[in-house]
């Protein structure tokens, strides 16, 4: 779907709350741009969107957008959003999260929101580090990385967000990177319109901490890395280099019952006095 009205950032952000807190070179602004373009192209009513976030650099995104916005506590954004969504299923629930927020402290809520298949769009802005607190490793850093809490390198294995979401029952799962901004936007559009729990992982660089600690260069170099080190799902390049990260839509299942719709059936039964 496209719209005649040209996209203007100003129609979707709260000018009063800028400048934002993100460091120069941070990838999160590209995620914000992709998300706002997605909302614009879908011609969604801003009054029908509730953006819920937790704590961290990425979570500040909810304050900048001109939607209903709920900036909550660390790791629990999906649980807050579950209350919003079940209470008012007509609202679109979008939950941007960082990797630590979503999968360390918030890991339990992540898998259970996926299991319920509640109609929420979870965006995991994965920069593989805790940025706001100054560069500690996250459950997505992986082994052999440097961080302020891993001065001798990490020994912790990392989650694969896509595999975790699939296994937990998310009915839409996609991955892209901030280098692929247009692709990210397309996946976000599909995720937002998907009826059920949708997960979009977007790899986003943190040159300030992850990049600096691990000698990955400046923002442009790190983004160049996303171009080189990722491929579309099933690419032939994987035959020679299986370590490449796959991008694309991994799951799109429209048959699974959505939680709020299933609850509406419970209401119908209960109102007939059949419980």
């Amino acid at each position: 779907m496209s719209t005649n009205k040209e996209f203007d950032f100003k129609n979707y952000v709260r000018g009063r709350y800028f400048p934002h807190i993100w460091c120069p070179g941070c990838g999160h602004g590209i995620v914000l741009g992709a998300l706002l373009r997605a909302v614009h192209e879908l011609e969604l009513d801003k009054n029908n969107i509730v953006m819920t976030s937790g704590i961290g650099c990425s979570s500040r995104i909810s304050g900048y957008v001109d939607f209903h916005s709920l900036h909550t506590i660390h790791g629990r954004a999906l649980a807050f959003a579950t209350g919003v969504k079940l209470s008012r299923p007509n609202l679109k629930a979008i939950v941007p999260m960082g990797d630590g927020d979503a999968l360390a402290i918030g890991g339990n809520h992540f898998i259970h929101a996926a299991r319920r298949n509640i109609d929420i769009t979870a965006i995991v802005m994965n920069n593989r580090i805790y940025g706001m607190t100054g560069g500690q490793f996250s459950p997505l850093s992986g082994t052999g990385k440097k961080a302020t809490t891993a001065p001798y390198t990490t020994i912790d294995n990392n989650f694969d967000v896509v595999e975790l979401a699939k296994a937990a029952g998310a009915s839409f799962v996609a991955r892209s990177t901030v280098f692929h901004a247009s692709e990210s936007k397309e996946y976000l559009k599909k995720a937002i319109m998907h009826k059920g729990f949708s997960v979009v992982e977007i790899l986003s660089q943190c040159p300030t901490y992850y990049g600096r600690k691990n000698k990955e260069g400046d923002a442009a170099t790190m983004m160049e890395g996303y171009r080189k080190n990722t491929v579309k799902i099933g690419s032939k390049k994987l035959d020679t280099n299986p370590d490449l990260i796959q991008r694309g839509i991994f799951v799109e299942d429209t048959d699974r019952p959505e939680y709020c719709e299933a609850y509406d059936e419970i209401i119908e039964t209960a109102m007939k006095g059949k419980a």
Partner: peptide, 11 residues
């Protein structure tokens, strides 16, 4: 967390 979210929608 869920009740706080729901309360904000008017419940």
């Amino acid at each position: 967390a869920a009740i706080i979210g729901a309360s904000l929608t008017g419940s």
